[in-house]
Simulated assay, not measured.
Amino acid sequence: MDDETCELVNGAELILGEGTDSIRAYLLKAVKNNNGNGVLLLSDIFGFEDSSTRDFAYRVACNGYNVLVPDLFRGNPWTKNRPRTQFELWLSRQPPERVAKDINTSAKWMVDEFVAAKITKKLGIIGFCFGGGKLIETIAQDKDSYFGIGICFYGTRMNPSLASNIKIPVLFVSGDDDPLCPVSILHDMKNNIRDSRVVVYQGRGHGFAHRPESPEDDKDAEDAFFVMRNWLHDSLVVKN
């Protein structure tokens, strides 16, 4: 992927839904090399406007996809300057039912935009950290079969018991030095999800793939992106 290709991406702010149920989102669309496939990207706690999240979404779009990043926190993401002692209080103000509803609103919008138009058959879904945990919940409850493939980057607060309800392949990516995403849980979940895969990077901590903080992180982040790109391509572009 070169810089010239990456320039061929359009970005737009959107409002999804109506009234009190409406949410903001950011859509990135490949222009000349668009393969027609939609990917829903669930952010970490820093939200949909965070530069690291948007940069990653941009790179995914560069490879031909239409990437939607919804505001999971209704304008109140976690910020780096807040004391960690306030984290659980902040999280309690992000009710799971509302977050799940907003994710469903986003998925339905993508289905109407891309699947109903017969551009693609299934959506892809990517989640980082908090979003990774929500990804597991979302695809475990995907009664309408919106999604065809999942990619979970170091998901937090995941419920392993949901794995048996998941019917699509999931790529799990994490570091072995990540206390928020134990590798043992990923392997337990993989064993209950058909055709899934776990990729673990030695010495890497939480967030390395989209927030690299060292040359070593950078190297493994590039590899993780390459693995993810192939997973998306093989499952959405080739199979669709």
Results as ranks from 00 to 15, higher is better:
213 E>I: 09
109 W>F: 15
86 Q>N: 11
99 V>C: 04
182 P>S: 04
192 N>L: 00
156 T>M: 05
97 E>H: 08
44 D>F: 15
184 S>Y: 01
48 F>R: 10
87 F>I: 06
157 R>H: 10
194 R>K: 14
141 Q>R: 14
36 G>Y: 05
4 E>F: 13
192 N>D: 05
117 A>W: 00
22 S>T: 08
79 T>E: 14
228 M>Y: 04
7 E>C: 00
89 L>S: 14
3 D>N: 04
125 I>V: 15
161 S>F: 08
149 I>S: 02
181 C>D: 14
104 N>H: 12
65 Y>Q: 13
223 D>R: 12
74 R>P: 00
236 L>G: 10
140 A>I: 13
37 N>P: 03
3 D>P: 01
232 L>D: 11
25 A>N: 01
58 Y>Q: 06
110 M>D: 09
212 P>R: 05
65 Y>A: 14
75 G>M: 13
7 E>H: 03
162 L>H: 04
21 D>V: 01
173 V>S: 07
204 R>K: 15
180 L>M: 04
80 K>R: 09
25 A>C: 03
45 I>E: 03
195 D>W: 12
19 G>Q: 10
29 K>A: 03
95 P>I: 08
157 R>M: 06
66 N>Y: 06
171 L>K: 08
110 M>N: 11
8 L>N: 15
35 N>A: 07
178 D>Q: 03
222 E>T: 01
228 M>G: 14
